[in-house]
Amino acid sequence: MTYCVGMMLDRGLVFMSDTRTNAGLDNISTFRKMTVWEDPGERCITLMAAGNLATTQAVVSLLDERSKTVQEREPSLMAVPSMFQAAGMVAETLRDVIARHAETGQRADSTFNATLILGGQVKGGPPRLFLIYPEGNFIEASADTPFFQIGETKYGRPILVRAYDPAMRFEDALKLLLVSFDSTLKANLTVGAPFDFHLYQADSLRAGPRDRIEADDPYFQLVSQGWGDALKEALDSLPPFTLDSQT
């Protein structure tokens, strides 16, 4: 399983993904699930993937190859004139890869499925964020839906819903995401550190700060312990429940 989050802020876009993949408790590996393409001054595009590893790696490899050799017959992320068209191209690539695998491999519902988060900015347009489904359709983030999650989403969602603020700083957004990821990995062993992140500054048209946060990172440990302690204190501060003396 996987956990990835893409978030829109007034300042730009924030991306974070875990790196754990597994095919059973005795077969756990680490793979990067975030890819960044940039043409400084022209565009910066980030892709995160959840789902079948063979499918997601095939999609990324195809997109990467096309971005290096721009040809009329092969659409490229480095040539499309807008993020909307980039989302359409990625969606079509994903649909084609899933269909090809399904025709030649074992047949089972959702065996080769994958879901993607695509975000970035192309010169002349605003920063945009998309959620791409395995069927090849996609939706765009908005003020009403300012972030997307893929993979194991349910455990990390409550803190995002409660604490998200479009005006927050990148530093505060990273802290919020680390709490979300910590809540998820504590509830589901198929999600795990290290975590990759990318911060894209709106209108910079170049990759922003990128790094990897390990499980033993001092700040992550501080956030994890502090969040657990804060939850316990908040629970203790609530008024006690009173049982009806008649029952």
Rank of each mutant, 00 (worst) to 15 (best):
A102R: 13
N113S: 15
G120E: 02
F147S: 00
L77G: 10
D144L: 11
V59N: 06
T153Q: 00
T104H: 15
V80N: 04
R100W: 06
P75T: 11
V60G: 03
V70K: 07
R128F: 04
G105Y: 14
S82D: 01
L63Q: 05
H101D: 03
I98W: 08
S76F: 11
I132C: 01
V161H: 11
L116Q: 08
V122I: 12
G88S: 14
A99G: 03
I132W: 06
Q121T: 13
P81E: 04
R66Q: 13
G124N: 13
Q57M: 10
T93Y: 04
F138V: 08
D109M: 15
D96C: 10
Y155W: 10
G125A: 05
L118G: 08
T111C: 10
I150D: 06
E92A: 15
S82Q: 08
D109E: 13
T93E: 12
A91Y: 04
L53F: 02
E72W: 15
D96K: 14
R95Q: 09
L63T: 10
E92M: 09
G51R: 06
S61D: 15
N52E: 11
L131S: 03
I139P: 01
G125I: 00
G136A: 05
L53R: 08
A143E: 13
A79C: 02
A114D: 00
E74M: 10
G136M: 11
T115N: 03
Q85L: 14
A114H: 05
R95D: 01
E135C: 09
M83V: 07
P126Y: 07
R95I: 11
M78T: 15
S110G: 02
V90L: 07
E92W: 06
Q106E: 10
G120F: 03
G120Y: 01
